[in-house]
Nucleic acid binder design. Structure first.
Lengths: 153, 153
DNA sequence: TTAATAAAATTTAATATTCAATAAATAACT
DNA sequence: AGTTATTTATTGAATATTAAATTTTATTAA
């Protein structure tokens, strides 16, 4: 496993930690996503429905920030969701640059149908770790996820 | 942070661990990938050059398995690398279904130019954690990354 | 040996993703 | 007011990604 590169111990530790982190995330995501196949939702589409359901209507800009995606990407995924009438764009009258995206009745209903299976898949993945290890993983990932130099004032 | 969903403690722990894992991986990847911009390599292209450099020539099938990508995807990324003359396909005479992919001189040279910066970026990311925490992260991710039911005989 | 099966790679169609350029609307400034 | 700058969203071009169908080659079975 890990890298074949032979370097200093410090390099090897960092490289192996990075590789295992990325692998763990990617393989877990792909298994969890299998729960979305039945409803013909992609991961990106699901992520948007999830945000809208649990947070409420959002601007495209906010969705992009939350999901770490570019504006162009959000535009297209919203387009595809809108074609299926799962979400709607609504122009904001106070500031017409914004579109508020909200779930339609069908979008809400589809999400409610899909979420339990998604949650179940996540739990199945995470239960490979004890509860305390899951908490430990949260701690480590929280640090790693911070933007570089976040500790600087 | 974490999910807005309100469920049982077990659900919340699993969901938050999953979300933080995915976030940590994605945000780290995007920062590390910034080191590839100068050389006009995408993440996928870099991953293939890396594998070929550190492991040696591989069949497309092997690359797909190693990188967790489909055959169709590998075909296209190899196409794009081949256009830039960074890799070459070589038909295997013993079994003409296979192509051996190997680095060209230019591919090897480009990789050698890019790798130090990539490694530096990885180290910078991982040094947010102490060495022992990096090792701990490896341990947790190794478990998480295993296929579900891997413990079953 | 022929027929069926399997395996590696390619192609096609659909969606995703980024970056860069553009359009439209608002905000800020003189 | 009028110009400039900023912000949100869209578009276009390039690459990525998957799933499913197809092609080519090799293996197995009858």
């Amino acid at each position: 496993m890990g890298t074949r590169y032979k370097g200093t111990e410090k390099e090897m530790t960092a490289l192996n930690a990075f590789i295992k982190l990325v692998r763990a995330a990617e393989s877990t995501i792909s298994r969890v996503n299998a729960s979305l196949v039945k409803s013909n939702l992609t991961e990106s589409q699901y992520a948007i429905l999830d945000a809208l359901y649990h947070i409420g209507p959002l601007f495209q800009k906010d969705l992009g920030n939350k999901l770490l995606k570019t504006g162009g990407n959000i535009t297209l995924v919203i387009d595809n969701l809108e074609k299926r009438k799962l979400v709607e764009r609504e122009r904001r009258e106070q500031d017409r640059r914004y579109f508020t995206i909200h779930l339609t009745k069908q979008g809400k209903s589809l999400f409610q149908k899909v979420f339990p299976g998604y949650l179940k898949a996540v739990i199945e993945e995470m239960q490979k770790l004890s509860k305390s290890d899951q908490v430990e993983l949260q701690r480590l990932c929280k640090v790693i996820g911070l933007p570089s130099g976040a500790s600087k004032k």
